[in-house]
Design a protein around this nucleic acid. Sequence first.
DNA 1: ATATTTATCATACATTTTGTATATTATTTG
DNA 2: CAAATAATATACAAAATGTATGATAAATAT
Lengths: 188, 188
Amino acid sequence: MNEKTDLRIVKTKKVLFDTLLKLMRQKNFDKIKISDICDEALINRSTFYAHYEDKYELLDDFIEDLKISLLKDLEDNVNNVTTKEYIMKSLSILIDHIDEKRDIYSAILLNNRNGFLVDFLIDVIERESLERLKNNNDIMKSELPLDILVKFYAGGLINVCMSWLTRKEKYNKEELLEFIDKLIPEKI
Amino acid sequence: MNEKTDLRIVKTKKVLFDTLLKLMRQKNFDKIKISDICDEALINRSTFYAHYEDKYELLDDFIEDLKISLLKDLEDNVNNVTTKEYIMKSLSILIDHIDEKRDIYSAILLNNRNGFLVDFLIDVIERESLERLKNNNDIMKSELPLDILVKFYAGGLINVCMSWLTRKEKYNKEELLEFIDKLIPEKI
DNA sequence: ATATTTATCATACATTTTGTATATTATTTG
DNA sequence: CAAATAATATACAAAATGTATGATAAATAT
């Protein structure tokens, strides 16, 4: 196994991704046609259909790629620290990631496809910190269910990061992280 | 001014809304065709075009309607209390609202069109509580910008409410409000 | 109640976009 | 270099959209 995919396929998918991104910066995904993408990408429309059923599959694949690259950035985030430290470190990596791929995430945001980030963060927190949270006396005695707590922070923090994306000039990365630091309680 | 709209228009829009909702519960908005809507609604397709340019305009109008009804529920939420009390009351009304219109919001959520709720909550908080927040010493000395704070809570709280929508059996409305109460600090 | 207005309908048709099929060409892999 | 296969060019069918028009029905105004 680990069969290498044909170079031509790699090329085609890359140009499809690039073109999709380019078009998503110009207009809403809803209004983008498969023929638009192919025209712009200079590939034959039948080639598109050889790879994807429709444009939604292409977008899914595109976002899947984003997720994988995000996961890769996160993977050596060693988790032998406190929950807060871990979340802060994860968010720092996430912010670097979306900052580097600013144009991509702006387009994603513009097209209301950023929901996956909240789920992603929930996954990360649950995978890495659920046990620690369960053993946290402060939280357990607050009688706040963990799933609620995790959803609250994931939703809030991603919303802050995404809004920062559109107003980057207002605060720099370090300031943003300071604010986030203040939003997450120590005792968590 | 205040010219009454023709009854037939009211009827047509209502059946279009109802049908859109029905279809959105069955499949993704992306996959719904104008002809699907018209067939199901038993209206002529040219009638559709007499009112809307495309299905996205219909959806916008539908969501606009939701917003208006939400605003109406909120409007007699007298605001002579603390910020926390005000936000709690607003969320209580919001939760009642989405609970009553559970089917609608489930469909909206399923179709990733719930982003407007976060913006809506931000608006509500900013309109009603920004001045009070500005005069809040605890917040001001924390050096957390208000816009960040508001976005954090709006994103987090809406995310909690939306996830509750899909797992209603887990907690009842009163429990949910208790949890939210614990998530919002007293001093705010 | 009747006249007027106008929204809806039925129908037809042009256009756009999608989806599929096939033979040919070009590129990659082994 | 040979075999495999991805991409292309092309054609065409089907689906969906968008527009136009006269007839019909429903609502409003007098």
